[in-house]
Design a protein around this nucleic acid. Structure first.
Lengths: 200, 200
DNA sequence: CCCCAGACTTGATCCAGGTCAAGGTGAGGG
DNA sequence: CCCTCACCTTGACCTGGATCAAGTCTGGGG
């Protein structure tokens, strides 16, 4: 199942028939308020699971971020799979629990952190998504942000203007460098990390 | 395992050896920032599970809210149980997924709702915790808040003063009534519900 | 019945981040 | 090569909720 950039493939609140695995590319998950306010509840990429809740309707919408490739498993066939491979059920629980732990951190971010702390935390998250060797003890790390500023804002519970201002401030302070729109170099990872934890 | 009021029994970041089931009473789960800011990530009561993540350390701290009674299951014995009763694994996954759906709503609350909307949402949550018959189509619902204002504030990402002010405003507007400190009567459930969704 | 400590409420002021409003900028198409 | 549109940045101003600072309630113990 290939989903083109920007195409929505899960409608929030619609009946949940399928379970998905992201094979390639990226997707964003979000919830909406009636007046259009949006909260992005997560980004998923290769290897991530979607729709773990075998409940009756989806608690979120999902949309491709760039072209994405997914595997779709109707609940019935998942049932058959878990019957045949009991370990799978354990694996799914592990996955759900891991996600749950991440959510705790995200609640703290949205409920208690300042804009600077949110952006710093977001940058650290991106660093940890890179292959481990890249950030072991490097004094600089670089990567591309796959999502536009609007998505970063909706993920962090901020406005696009605030995201832009804080990134500019980080750049002005020599903590990061920005090339083009998407390419970020973290100049001082340890200071970004300190800001993320609320230590400065 | 009986835990007295206010006693902390899970330390955030400590090695996760056990899985808990709340048998009686209530507990609060929270994460802390180094400078003391606190986010309550959830309240658990009779029948709820704690520590689903079979990871190496707890992602949250936990503390009794009033006297609470818990069952503690070391991970090793959980393993034995799930080996013996394969359905249990499925049950645990369901529980984790249900929790995950709730988390999505909570992210939206913390990231995108106003103080009034947060308090209204919180009140609706309390209503839905009551036995179903109570709120089927009642024109009024009443209950006691088991937690102090400080905990409500840390749960909703607000300060105690804002919680107090908004509750006073709801009372002034005839939406709710407050007797003593803890007893709440929802006078106009449908309007509270509308505020919760951001519709007024 | 009164006292007291802890919890809540209320008021005055402040400020981080939102809102509104112009400008930049750069990637893709003609 | 330049145009243009979508996206991003920057500036000026505003406001919801935080902060700071008094009060006030209340319920439990003597």
């Amino acid at each position: 199942m290939t989903v083109p950039d920007g195409r929505s493939f899960i409608e929030e609140g619609s009946p949940a028939h399928d379970f998905f695995v992201v094979t390639d590319g990226r997707v964003k998950l979000f919830t909406l308020l009636p007046d259009g306010r949006r909260q992005i509840t997560g980004f998923a990429e290769g290897g991530d699971f979607l729709g773990l809740a075998a409940s009756t309707s989806y608690a979120f919408g999902a949309e491709a971020l760039g072209t994405a490739v997914l595997c779709r498993f109707p609940h019935a066939s998942m049932q058959r799979l878990t019957d045949r491979f009991p370990n799978l059920e354990h694996r799914l629980r592990q996955e759900a629990s891991r996600e749950l732990s991440l959510m705790q951190a995200r609640l703290t971010l949205l409920g208690r952190k300042t804009a600077r702390e949110r952006l710093a935390t977001f940058l650290m998250e991106r660093i940890h998504l890179l292959a481990p060797p890249c950030h072991a003890n490097a004094s600089q790390v670089e990567f591309d942000l796959p999502m536009p500023r609007t998505d970063i804002a909706d993920y962090l519970g901020l406005t696009i203007e605030t995201v832009s201002r804080v990134l500019s401030a980080f750049k002005r302070e020599g903590l990061i460098n920005i090339r083009g729109i998407t390419h970020i170099t973290i100049m001082q990872p340890e200071r970004i990390s300190a800001i993320a934890e609320g230590l400065e």
